[in-house]
């Protein structure tokens, strides 16, 4: 049991006119090695929730256990937690500051107090994982393209060797190719290193192809928490909270309503193709 969240509440600006309850009674269990998609409309509380997971925001009430230990407990090291739970913020390229790509990726491991060889080893490895070779090492982060900058920023987190990797909208503002590259690399990391990945997004299409579990947030509460196919079966309710199921769900549901005998639990285009072919034969 890697992460366990119990009765978590978070209230902004308590005691002023701007008081707002951002999270309401969240209970979640996130086992090791899962690939999770977290989906919700803007302002649904998903970004706030993930910042609790590495202790950047302290809950108003409730507890979070990481590997069985209460992270709000006496003497619990937040620095340690942050090296275990890596959080890649939205538009992470805005946090780059060093003179070159390599130094920027070194920033995380350096803060962990590792020795110089280990730091450089980790930086090389992380840059390799995001597909940037040594020709980029000495470039200024500011002369790279948007997608490359983002990969440098993700490498900066990977170099800390997190057990849990949380990505907040990692594909926002990227072109389709950049989006697929980043998501494929994340999926590869999950496969090869068996780390837990939480992918925050508002695009169902993005997550449907990769994740094994979807958590839908709405107005600060967990609205749905299930496998993709079972979450998408609630596509009418999803529309009610300002989201939409992937296109293939609509195609198969429409076919079914017109009398076809078709499997509506498909989530990717490939599966949908197979289902339609089966239904036609």
């Amino acid at each position: 049991m890697a992460i366990k969240i119990e009765r978590l509440n978070y209230i902004y600006s308590e005691g002023t006119a701007f008081r707002k309850q951002a999270l309401k009674d969240i209970n979640l269990e996130i086992p090791d090695g899962q690939f999770i998609g977290m989906i919700g409309h803007t302002g649904s509380g998903k970004s706030t929730l993930i910042q609790h997971l590495n202790g950047l925001i302290r809950a108003t009430s409730g507890t979070i256990y990481y590997n069985g230990e209460n992270i709000y407990g006496e003497g619990y090291s937040m620095k340690e937690l942050r090296s275990r739970v890596g959080l890649v913020f939205q538009y992470p390229e805005h946090q780059l500051f060093e003179i070159d790509v390599f130094h920027d990726v070194c920033f995380g491991p350096k803060n962990l107090g590792l020795c110089q060889e280990e730091i450089e080893e980790r930086a090389r490895e992380a840059l390799d994982q995001v597909g940037l070779d040594s020709s980029y090492y000495r470039k200024s982060p500011f002369e790279l393209s948007g997608g490359q900058k983002r990969r440098v920023a993700i490498a900066g987190i990977l170099a800390m060797h997190p057990q849990v990797l949380i990505l907040d909208e990692p594909t926002a503002g990227l072109d389709p190719r950049g989006r697929d590259e980043i998501l494929d690399q994340v999926a590869k990391l999950h496969r090869e290193q068996n780390i837990t990945v939480i992918l925050v997004s508002h695009s169902m299409e993005d997550v449907a192809n990769y994740v094994e579990r979807i958590i839908v947030m709405n107005k600060g509460q967990v609205f749905l928490d299930d496998t993709p196919s079972r979450v998408f079966a609630h596509y009418k309710e999803l529309e009610g909270v300002g989201l939409a199921a992937p296109q293939v769900t609509y195609v198969t549901q429409t076919l079914k309503s017109q009398g076809w005998d078709i499997d509506t639990s498909v989530t990717t285009i490939e599966e949908a193709k197979q289902a339609i072919l089966r239904a036609m034969s």
Partner: peptide, 13 residues
């Protein structure tokens, strides 16, 4: 606030 948090997530103090 955002940048500060992002750097704290990378272990900055």
């Amino acid at each position: 606030d955002k940048i500060q948090k992002a750097q704290m997530a990378r272990g900055a103090d």
